[in-house]
């Protein structure tokens, strides 16, 4: 292996093109899986950094999904552009969902990342991961996972509370949250999340065009 990563990649392709071309184009190999892992770490951290200040406050908590959607867009698009194989976004969603589950958030969010990630992957792969519109739709779906918790909160509140309020002393948080909940919040929250995700994807497109394509990180 060469030390310079750009040289290493060219050498790898030239040396093994005849052998691995067919397989390499279709299936995720170890390099892709590692790339997914690294970018998932970035995405997880950006989701948490964006959302944490909203999640801790019961009035602002309704804007957590939009805040979580705002930051990871560029990382998400760069991951899709770098790997470009079926399953990238689905596996990223699986990893993020696992983290969300382990950190004790509402289980619907974790399921959302897995299901919507797979759905987004199908859409993005139909454009060969090269269409900005399809990648952006995939990112918007991915970001909407966080809304699921609140969709359940508004449609089946008793169930949501029973699965969240583990100890009775936590009630003040949820009482304030219920007092702050209005009917109009849910549609506005979903629309806000979509807009925020779209904005993040647009910033990502700009960065990809202006910086990463020039630097040879993606082609």
């Amino acid at each position: 292996m060469c030390i310079d990563p750009s040289v290493a990649r060219v050498g790898y392709v030239n040396n093994q093109r005849k052998l691995f071309m067919a397989e390499e184009n279709r299936r995720l190999d170890a390099r892709d899986l590692i790339t997914i892992g690294v970018f998932s770490a970035v995405i997880v951290v950006l989701i948490f950094v964006g959302g944490v200040f909203f999640a801790i406050n019961p009035v602002l908590t309704f804007w957590t999904p939009a805040a979580c959607a705002l930051l990871p867009g560029p990382a998400f698009l760069l991951l899709a552009a770098k790997v470009r194989k079926r399953g990238v976004i689905a596996i990223c969603g699986l990893v993020v969902g696992l983290v969300v589950f382990v950190t004790g958030m509402f289980w619907g969010i974790a399921v959302g990342y897995v299901v919507l990630g797979a759905l987004g992957d199908a859409i993005a792969s139909s454009g060969g991961y090269g269409s900005f519109a399809r990648n952006a739709v995939a990112y918007i779906l991915f970001s909407l996972s966080f809304c699921i918790s609140f969709i359940v909160f508004f449609t089946n509140r008793s169930y949501w509370l029973s699965s969240m309020a583990s100890s009775s002393a936590d009630e003040a948080y949820f009482e304030t949250m219920i007092a702050a909940a209005r009917e109009w919040i849910l549609p506005v929250m979903i629309a806000g999340t979509v807009l925020s995700a779209l904005l993040s994807a647009l910033v990502g497109r700009r960065l990809l065009k202006r910086q990463f394509e020039k630097a040879g990180i993606v082609s």
């Binding site: 290493a8 390099r31 970035v42 560029p74 990382a75 910033v203």
Partner: peptide, 26 residues
Amino acid sequence: TVECFYVPMLMSAARVADELSAAAVA
């Protein structure tokens, strides 16, 4: 501001991914 934040972060993520892959493949 956005560029100054994302470019180094994503560049280093991409570099780390390449280096880790090379190490893991080896």
